[in-house]
Design a protein around this nucleic acid. Structure first.
Lengths: 143, 143
DNA sequence: CATATAAAGGATAAAAAAGTCTTTTAATCT
DNA sequence: AGATTAAAAGACTTTTTTATCCTTTATATG
């Protein structure tokens, strides 16, 4: 469903959302350790996220990554589309090009609604929404 | 969600289900052409499926692949688990090891039910079920 | 029985994804 | 200004997935 890379991206952003702030920036290695994401690889991903204003970063001493208020209102889909490309989630389960509701592939009915629902959630759920759940104790990030 | 290989596998099996019979076997290249699946690669996949009794095959002149009555009652999940391994569908969206309903990751609620429902369908839907839909005109295979 | 045919099997190649390493740039702090 | 710190950038390596090629085995048929 999601590539390794976009899982890393979402995890890292959530980690920042919970643990970082403009006053308390977090370095790549400090995300890498608790999440078990390879440090150098994570750095690449954070760079990309930073370039597209999904996370904020500052170089040098006391530098690191954090989320601005704007960053916190980014929708999940933006992260995933950036890392995986827009097609990955949208395409037919069997990768049949002209598969749609009017001309469905044999698996279409098994995933159609399911996928559409997931897609809408990804488009409407922000980082802030997820952090809210975590703070309410409704969900958890791996320490 | 599914690897390229298991998409190929499902597509090929469905193609056989609709077009082949013990009297009218179909060769790898005759599946390869209409489905645009690379022939040599498809052959590998059909071999694997044959080895695990998901499709039937006969060598030599007038040989090829077809589905026995038994083959037609195979569940979709068997094909996908064989090609992709069982973990691919089961694992958490963020690949968090101890993610479960009692200790959900932040994306869990977005996919949990959705995935579970899909999983059940894959476990209960046979090739025959899908062929039935195609014959009823409810779904389509790419010519 | 010889021959042609088509799958099975094994070895290899190409492409994509994941991961690493080294250098450069920007910021902070004496 | 100089030293230090941490991200940015770019080149590179490894692993996995996808794909191809060639040889062997089984089978039907003349």
């Amino acid at each position: 469903m999601l590539s390794n890379s976009s899982k890393y991206a979402v995890t890292a952003v959530l980690y920042l959302a919970v643990n970082a702030s403009p006053e308390n920036k977090i370095q790549a290695k400090d995300i890498s350790e608790p999440t078990a994401i390879p440090k150098a690889y994570l750095s690449k991903i954070l760079q990309e996220l930073s370039r597209h204003h999904i996370v904020s970063s500052v170089k040098g001493p006391n530098g690191g990554f954090y989320l601005s208020e704007e960053n916190r209102n980014v929708n999940l889909i933006k992260i995933i589309d950036l890392i995986d490309g827009e097609d990955r989630l949208k395409s037919c389960v069997l990768s049949i090009k002209d598969c749609n509701a009017d001309h469905p592939c044999p698996l279409h009915s098994m995933v159609g609604q399911t996928k559409a629902r997931f897609f809408v959630k990804m488009k409407t759920t922000t980082i802030n929404d997820l952090v809210f759940d975590i703070k309410e104790g409704k969900s958890f990030l791996p320490l």
